[in-house]
Computed example of a mutant assay.
Amino acid sequence: MNLNLLDEESMQPSEPKPCNFFKGEDAVKKAKQLGLPDLELVRQAIMIGDADFRTNTYYNRARFIARWGKIGEQLALLLRHSDPAWVFHNDSQPRIENIAKKIQIIFMSGNIALGHADQIVSAHCEKGFMTLKNIKENQSTYDDETKLRTWILYFPSASHPAYKGIDIPTIPFEFAYPTSFVQNSKAEKISILPSNHTCRIAFEIDNTLPVKADPKPVLEPSDEIKPDDFDIQLVV
């Protein structure tokens, strides 16, 4: 596969592909069929990330990144105790991975199209090398059983109307399968937006529920012996 990330072909918008859109009970069935994570755990992770975000003030310049990190962290921790086949990786691009199911999931805030079948979903802000690489590998994944299929868990950005208006009863989120991308040719470094999702599975969170706080999950102690386990004193 051509992984020359700035080739002319990659920088051209590709033709839209048919997209299967699922919502309601059909979405629940499709998620189970594909082996995606427990939807209730995903809802909990997003709600906890939102609650943590609200405690950060305008002066915290990293509050948006922290929300993204909190949602991924919470989903990984919840899955760790309920379905250990899902493994969290924090290198390059944070993701959860299930080798048996040949699936990995990356996290990003989505645009205003979340939950709307007639609009084109993508990320709220541009992404970099690893997102581009995963999308390119998606183009041949079903022909190569050694590769993982990369799904994107899209949650609303903090600027989504669901967080601005009190009369919006639900918060949307989606699992989507990207097969192409739009390259920003004016950017000095790799800068893309996912596109051509061939499958979108849309869900909602009740926006009238009380905000959940971070439960601070306690990780199970490890039997591995590390240097920190020894009382090392400086001898003068």
Rank of each mutant, 00 (worst) to 15 (best):
E8Y: 09
L219R: 10
Q12L: 13
E9V: 12
D223F: 12
L39A: 12
V121H: 06
K147E: 08
P16N: 08
S157G: 13
Q12R: 13
T170N: 12
R67Y: 07
V28S: 06
W68M: 08
K226T: 14
N90K: 07
G35M: 03
A117M: 14
F22Q: 04
Q93P: 00
H124C: 10
A62R: 13
G35L: 03
E126F: 00
P227I: 08
T57Y: 08
R63V: 14
R95F: 02
R61P: 08
E15R: 11
E40Q: 15
M130A: 05
N2A: 08
K17P: 04
K127N: 03
G128A: 00
D144N: 15
C19S: 13
T55G: 10
S159T: 11
K136E: 08
I71A: 02
A117N: 14
N98D: 09
E188C: 02
P172Y: 05
Y163Q: 01
S82N: 12
P169T: 11
S10T: 01
E224D: 12
A176M: 05
L219Y: 04
R200D: 04
P156Q: 06
H160A: 09
A51M: 02
I106M: 03
K101N: 05
T179A: 04
S157W: 04
L193F: 12
I96G: 02
N4R: 00
Y142G: 01
S191F: 01
F173P: 12
S195M: 06
A117R: 14
E204H: 12
A85L: 08
K101M: 00
